[in-house]
Design a binder for these strands. Structure first.
Length: 490
RNA sequence: CGGGAUGUAGCGCAGCCCGGUAGCGCGCUUCGUUCGGGACGAAGAGGCCGCAAGUUCGAAUCUUGUCAUCCCGACCA
């Protein structure tokens, strides 16, 4: 048995990449850099999707949908925007296929060449602002608070499952406002929504911050972000919210009459999170036994595994389990009763652990007799025997505890791997060791790029919640007003 | 797009150097024994060796091209 176990661990525990992507969440498709999200993985995405959607609606947003195809000319209207995306666009040039006259198969019909090429959206600012022009005439039409759930395509040179796929699912909010202040408030508000979602639902501690000019979104005036630390110490940008100023309004000629009866350009924001969040979830919480899901995004919160030998036992145990399942469901919990006759209990234990189910219950004849049930929690792998009486309350409370524990564990990990440094030697050493480094920065792109060149560390963000502090730049020695975060990133 | 590696059964791999028509482990099927932590035995099923050309009597193996994947750069959510 030990040998079998070893073999399987070798197969399954090659960290999240093999384990989760190949075993459960996705598998590579024939399309370059794309992913198949398997049902269990998609269920996790649906939970994140639904929770976010509720939060958007609570903050006054509504959903809409805009075309997948963007005429090439749209993309070129905002100069820095097109510059940012030009190198990673999929382009539609033809509209038809035809039988190959020279043999079998089909070829692109040269007659069907499009007059203007279409770009498969890498993001939708352009087509949405082209549409907003017709929606906005007066300050009375504002604000527009629209969100879109969609897929986008970015033909990246190098792809990475979940973190940077050629096609990914996301939501993109695009809002239009009458004043700069209102737009800025909106961008900040959505950053708060993302931070709350990451921390409360995904149990993922994040740092809210502002991007440096160098890392800013193409076309934005200011980019806000949430940054998270993965278990290898690398930083992952988990969500962004942009204050777009009047850049897109000017590019697409979106003007309105304000209260003073003066014509003005509209102020804009955009904000988005993607299936990259699933990558964050996996990389932040998984262990060698597989995925660890915070209960709030777990498609299954409790799995019940029956244990029996004989047919007589089977019936009694199943009845016992079904009753528990119904009682838990009555409390609003998502429960799976694994009554498969084809797998043994030990196999099921391992499988559900790999899938990250927060709580497992196992019941056999002994439990039926004693009115007990064995409970195992995924986050700590602890097992305990609890009484069947009042188990609903116990489990409900435990799920909250697990949610909190996973968050605290990630938070502690980040704290343990975050340092403040004041010398260049310390800086290099700590970046090399995969730490988040708080250091003084002189505020110039030049220094930022030099640091990146020498250490591969990027300026993750200028933290919003930190106090100002006088100091000198760790690289250039020039004066600095505050510390910023440097780290290696995905 | 540059540098490196890889592509053989559902998954993980061996075979390639030195050409002779494919093998191992897991998984899968059937039967029996098992069943409170990834069971065991026996018998089976499954592969135009990524794709396309070339060399050869003969190619998984040699040559060229091509596509894809992974790692390192540049780029990015």
């Amino acid at each position: 048995m030990a040998k079998e176990l070893t073999t399987r661990q070798e197969n399954y525990s090659q960290w999240y990449n093999d384990l989760v992507t190949k075993a459960d969440l996705a598998e590579n498709s024939a399309v370059r850099g794309c992913m198949v999200i398997k049902p269990y993985g998609y269920a996790i995405w649906e939970f994140m999707h639904d929770a976010l959607d509720r939060m958007f609606k609570q903050t006054g947003h509504v959903n809409a949908y805009f075309p997948l195809f963007i005429p090439k000319s749209f993309l070129s209207k905002e100069a820095s925007h097109v510059e940012g995306f030009a190198k990673e666009c999929a382009v539609v040039t033809h509209s038809r296929l035809m039988s190959n006259p020279n043999g079998n198969g089909v070829i692109v019909d040269p007659e069907s060449k499009l007059e203007e090429e279409l770009i498969v959206r890498p993001t939708s600012e352009t087509i949405i602002w082209d549409t907003y022009r017709n929606w906005i005439k007066s300050y009375r039409d504002l604000p527009i608070l629209v969100n879109q759930w969609a897929n986008v395509v970015r033909w990246e040179m190098r792809t990475r499952l979940f973190l940077r796929t050629a096609e990914f699912l996301w939501q993109e909010g695009h809002t239009a406002h009458a004043t700069k202040e209102e737009a800025l408030t909106e961008a900040r508000k959505m950053l708060e929504v993302y931070a709350e979602f990451a921390e409360k639902h995904m149990a993922l501690p994040v740092i809210k911050g502002i991007k440096s000019a160098n890392e800013r979104f193409a076309g934005a005036v200011e980019t806000f972000c949430i940054e998270a630390m993965m278990q290898d110490g690398k930083a992952l940008q988990a969500g962004t919210s942009h204050f777009l100023g009047q850049n897109f309004a000017k590019a697409f000629d979106v003007k309105f009459l304000n209260k003073e009866n003066k014509l003005d350009y509209v102020w804009a924001t955009s904000w988005g999170v993607s299936t990259r969040l699933m990558g964050a979830l996996i990389m932040a919480h998984s262990d060698d036994n597989g995925l660890v899901l915070p209960p709030k995004v777990a498609p299954i919160e409790v799995v019940i595994v029956p244990i029996y030998k004989t047919d007589d036992q089977r019936q009694a145990v199943i009845n016992y389990c079904v009753e528990m399942k119904e009682r838990l469901e009555k409390k609003g919990l998502r429960v799976k009763f694994d009554d498969r006759d084809t797998q043994k209990p030990g196999f099921k234990f391992a499988e559900w652990e790999m899938k990250g189910v927060p709580v497992r219950l196992a019941a056999g004849p002994r439990d039926v007799e004693n009115k007990t049930v064995e409970l195992a929690r995924r986050d700590t792998m602890e097992k305990m025997e609890i009484s069947e009486n009042g188990m609903e309350e116990k489990i409900t409370a435990l799920l909250e505890e697990i949610q909190e524990n996973i968050y605290q564990k990630a938070l502690k990990y980040r704290k343990d791997n975050t340092v403040r440094v004041d010398t260049w030697d310390d800086f290099k050493k700590n970046i090399e060791n995969g730490k988040f480094v708080y250091a003084h920065w002189d505020g110039t792109t030049e220094t930022e790029l030099k640091i990146k060149e020498e250490t591969k560390a990027t300026l993750r963000c200028i933290p919003l919640d930190d106090d100002l502090e006088d100091g000198i730049d760790v690289y250039s020695g020039k004066p600095s007003k505050r510390r910023v975060i440097f780290a290696k990133a995905y």
